[in-house]
Nucleic acid binder design. Sequence first.
DNA 1: AACAAAATTTATCATAAGATAAATAATCAA
DNA 2: TTGATTATTTATCTTATGATAAATTTTGTT
Lengths: 187, 187
Amino acid sequence: MNNLIKYFNQFNHLSDEAVKAIADISKPVNIKKNQDLQSIGHTCRTIYFIKKGVARIYYYKDDIEITECFAFENTIIARVESLFTGKPSRKAIQMIEDSELIGINSPKLFELYDKFPEIERLFRKIFESAYVDTVNRVESIQFHSAEERYNALLKESPNVLQRVPLKYIASFLGITQVSLSRIRGIR
Amino acid sequence: MNNLIKYFNQFNHLSDEAVKAIADISKPVNIKKNQDLQSIGHTCRTIYFIKKGVARIYYYKDDIEITECFAFENTIIARVESLFTGKPSRKAIQMIEDSELIGINSPKLFELYDKFPEIERLFRKIFESAYVDTVNRVESIQFHSAEERYNALLKESPNVLQRVPLKYIASFLGITQVSLSRIRGIR
DNA sequence: AACAAAATTTATCATAAGATAAATAATCAA
DNA sequence: TTGATTATTTATCTTATGATAAATTTTGTT
């Protein structure tokens, strides 16, 4: 739980009791490379913290698989459009490497919000931050070329190429694998 | 304040004291058509509820003005990437029509969170919902054609064409005004 | 109403990315 | 290690959208 607490403290310091309460509704999850952590059609009831490994969220658009995002060590991942609405998700979470995670039961977490306003505040801040990232992502997709987005991704996650197949990177960037290959070929 | 309270109640019911506390840090704002409500370079310290009128958030990319989003009556609008980070915003909010708003002082609002967990919860839910909308927007921009996005906008906001100039709609859709005109011309 | 300014459309040409197919390279499993 | 599978690149042709310019329509102001 150590890194998880460190992660939490970046957003909001928690009392020992609050940490204990979260620990009580959390459990370790280990997943093999290329396995789905959560599947399409399933309602998100777990927020995962990645201790080790790389995750991606993906879905299908017209039978084509699209990668929505990646998540690396020491961050959390969840399909928020299901987590916050309670609706089944059209998306899945897959681990790209053998991974170790901590799963936090979200219905129980949301119950803790009543007793621990500091926990509610923590997750408010975590998701506000993720919201800001997503607002910035809209701008990036809409007004930067595929090549600019590729270079920005490399800058932001220099090891993404070592850890993530190009076909996933391509759809994350909003282009086909062939186009990505072309962009990469230029230099 | 009536419609504002109705809006709040969609997310979280507030006690009378909480409503009063918010009222105490709110004030009416009237803005003429085409005037900026908040300007570029200014840190967002107000969350606005739109009683009457249409707002848009815009910014410049390479000297070209880009509309990030629109907001209509009975919703709130704020430049969240500044509101949540405290950094000056590269974006502005402009009212497209003569408008009446309620401005809620956000530093004071955030102070209320300590005394009124119900207010913190309210805004947590409001922004969680906005976050989900933005996640869906990413998908829409990335994997639907400009024409699909135009039709989706018309479906979602049927009166947008009556109230918003096409040049703003074009950059919101991520295309030039000329391209939008071409798309519209097809039918 | 009449003019000026702004918004929208139309036209032409250029370009980034898509679709498809095929070649090559890398990875995995027996 | 070898063959099979999967990932990546290369090539060709097509298409949606961009850039620019000009025409037309709408809006705003005196």
